[in-house]
C-alpha cells in the first residue's frame, strides 16, 4: 500500500516537475528577451515612405503634326517634337522643334522659270523655348461618369526660325488644349503664331512682321 502510494506520489511529482520546468524554460526564454533587448535591432525595417517610391511625372515629351500657314507660301504640313517641364499646376516650360516644307513663292509660281532660292531653303525650320500658363482647368465628360481632365493653356516664347537662307529671332504666341488620357498619356490641340520679320525678297514694301500660324495635334508622354 505504502509502495503504491509512494509510486503514485513520485510519478505525480515527476510529472509536475517536468511540466513546470518545461513551462519555466519557456518563460525564462521570454524573460531573457524582455530583460535584454538588443540596443539596435538590425531586423527593424523602416516602412516609411521613401522619396524614390513616389513616381514624379513632371516631364512631358511628344510629337506633333499639323498645318502651318507660312506667310507668302500657303499652308503646308508641319511636324515636330515638343518637350515640357511642369513646374507647378499653373506654369510649365516647353521646348519645340518643328519643320514645314513650303513650295514656290507666288512669283516663282506665276513665272514658272525663276528660282528665288534653293530647295534646301524651302524648309521652314524653327525651334523655341516657351513658357506655358495653365489657365482653364476642366473636365471633358465622354459619358456622365467617364471624364478626362483637360486644361487650356497660353503659350509665349522666343526662338529661332531658319528659312529662305536666313536665320532670325522669332517670337511665338499661342494657346492650346491638353487632354489627359491616362496617367502618362495626353493629347493636345495647339494653335501658335510664330512671328518673324517679313522676308525682304518677298516684302510688299511694308516693314511689319510675318505671322506664320500653325495648328497642330500632339501626343505626349508624361514621365
Amino acid at each position: 500500500m505504502d509502495n503504491r502510494f509512494i509510486r503514485v506520489f513520485l510519478s505525480t511529482l515527476a510529472l509536475a516537475l517536468l511540466t513546470t520546468t518545461g513551462a519555466r524554460a519557456e518563460e525564462s526564454g521570454a524573460d531573457t528577451a524582455l530583460q535584454e533587448p538588443p540596443v539596435i535591432d538590425p531586423k527593424v525595417v523602416r516602412l516609411g515612405l521613401k522619396e524614390s517610391e513616389i513616381d514624379d511625372e513632371n516631364f512631358e515629351l511628344g510629337l506633333f503634326a499639323g498645318y502651318m500657314s507660312v506667310e507668302h507660301f500657303g499652308t503646308h504640313e508641319v511636324y515636330g517634337v515638343r518637350a515640357a517641364w511642369h513646374v507647378n499646376e499653373d506654369l510649365f516650360f516647353e521646348a519645340n522643334y518643328g519643320q514645314a516644307t513650303v513650295g514656290d513663292t507666288p512669283a516663282e509660281y506665276v513665272s514658272g522659270e525663276i528660282q528665288l532660292t534653293t530647295d534646301d531653303n524651302r524648309d521652314f525650320v524653327y525651334y523655341n523655348l516657351t513658357m506655358g500658363f495653365n489657365v482653364l482647368p476642366g473636365e471633358a465628360f465622354v459619358t456622365s461618369d467617364w471624364a478626362f481632365n483637360t486644361n487650356i493653356y497660353l503659350l509665349a516664347g522666343g526662338g529661332t526660325v531658319d528659312f529662305f537662307g536666313d536665320k532670325e529671332f522669332a517670337l511665338n504666341l499661342g494657346m492650346g488644349l491638353r487632354m489627359i488620357l491616362t496617367d502618362s498619356l495626353a493629347i493636345h490641340a495647339t494653335f501658335q503664331d510664330i512671328m518673324t520679320d517679313k522676308l525682304q525678297e518677298l516684302s510688299d514694301g511694308d516693314d511689319g512682321s510675318a505671322h506664320n500660324m500653325q495648328y497642330t495635334a500632339s501626343l505626349t508622354y508624361f514621365f
Binding site: 513616389i54 511625372e57 511642369h86 495653365n134 481632365n149 486644361n151 489627359i180 496617367d183 508624361f222
Partner: peptide, 27 residues
C-alpha cells in the same frame, strides 16, 4: 478629380483610413 485647385473635391478620406500613393505631378 485632377492635379490642380480648379478641379472639384469629389471625395474625402476619413481619419484612420489608408490611401495608396500612386504618383505625383507638380504639387
Amino acid at each position: 478629380t485632377g492635379p490642380g485647385r480648379g478641379y472639384p473635391v469629389t471625395q474625402i478620406v476619413e481619419r484612420g483610413d489608408w490611401v495608396e500613393v500612386m504618383l505625383r505631378r507638380t504639387d
